[in-house]
């Protein structure tokens, strides 16, 4: 297992480098000149020479390969460059706003898994009953409801009942977890509905698939208690495909943050991303996309390791 972990960790590095390269060039293709936009905004006047000077100062007039080398050399040192708009280091800018997004993503994942597991399992075990149908409708709904609209409905319901929205001045997760949870519960629910639906559906179908396997019949033929057959022999195998989906769908969750933060007016990196697009802040986009893709890669690394822990066939392959 240790060896597998080491191997898998090493394989992440080339992926991350490739992601960085791709992001760098994608962002360079962006049309429009962020400096020009900024200057017009500031002075209402466009002086080509001024633009050139400003660009030169920000290093945008350097040859592409120099920019690229600077970017790639900076990354491992934790230097992502500066924002073209605020001219503050990106690490600072993003650092100030990423915490709440991470907390939100974490709560949403937790909430989704907590909701999905009992629902998916129950739907599988009571397959074909009204209970299964209710869960089925709820989960198909989860795939169809736009998360931003779901968030708006939640807000509407809160305003209509409580009359106000939870304060957005969040206490830190570790300082006051309950207050933090209360603040983030509704946004987390709004972004996690889809996530939990996907997990519940996957779990339901993998349990059904696993329960039809030959080794389940073997377990029953041994005279084991049905409870043991399902939990020990069934669930553990059904978890395998489910865990993979949890990892893959994490990308969707991050995407959901972009709209949900907008709806709940949360100052996280999702909102930051939309602003960066509107202001044409190339380096900011670059930094944000890089962070998002990296988090996806790392989450899937975690998922792979979890998978290996559950499945000896992977564990012993190396």
């Amino acid at each position: 297992m240790l060896r597998y972990t080491a191997q898998r960790l090493l394989l992440v590095i080339p992926t991350l480098i490739a992601v960085a390269i791709l992001v760098f060039f994608l962002v360079r293709v962006l049309p429009g000149d962020p400096v020009e936009v900024k200057l017009i905004g500031e002075f209402g006047d466009v002086n080509p020479e001024l633009i050139y000077k400003e660009r030169k100062r920000l290093g945008l007039e350097d040859p592409l390969h120099i920019q690229f080398v600077n970017f790639m050399v900076g990354l491992p040192q934790g230097d992502m460059g500066i924002s073209l708009v605020t001219e503050r280091p990106l690490t600072e800018e993003i650092g100030a706003r990423i915490t709440i997004s991470i907390e939100l993503a974490f709560f949403a994942t937790l909430l989704s898994v907590i909701i999905a597991f009992p629902l998916g399992t129950a739907a599988a075990l009571y397959r074909g009953t009204w209970f299964d149908y209710v869960i089925r409708i709820i989960t198909i709904g989860g795939l169809a409801v736009p998360s931003f609209w779901f968030g708006m409905l939640i807000i509407m319901a809160l305003l209509a009942t409580v009359g106000k929205l939870p304060s957005l001045d969040t206490a830190g997760l570790f300082e006051d977890p309950m207050a933090n949870l209360y603040t983030l519960f509704w946004p987390a629910l709004s972004v996690g509905y889809r996530y939990s639906s996907v997990i519940a559906r996957m779990l339901r179908s993998s349990i059904l698939e696993v329960l039809a396997e030959d080794y389940i019949r073997t377990a029953r033929a041994k005279g084991l208690y049905e409870r043991i057959v399902i939990v020990k022999h069934g669930m553990r195998n059904a978890l395998l495909p489910t865990v993979t989906v949890v990892g893959l769908e994490f990308a969707f969750l991050i995407g959901g943050l972009v709209v949900t933060e907008q709806v709940f007016n949360i100052n996280g990196i999702g909102k930051m991303f939309v602003e960066a697009v509107q202001f044409n802040d190339m380096t900011m986009l670059q930094g944000l996309v890089l962070i998002v893709a990296t988090s996806f890669v790392l989450i899937n690394l975690l998922v792979d390791l979890l998978y290996a822990a559950l499945d000896p066939r992977i564990r012993y392959q190396a």
Binding site: D214, A219, A221, G223, P312, R313
Partner: peptide, 18 residues
């Protein structure tokens, strides 16, 4: 499994892989 037990056709799939 106590007084009657059974052996199946597919040894590849009849044992729990995990």
């Amino acid at each position: 499994g106590r007084h009657i037990s059974m052996i199946f056709q597919e040894p590849m799939t009849s044992l729990n892989p995990v």
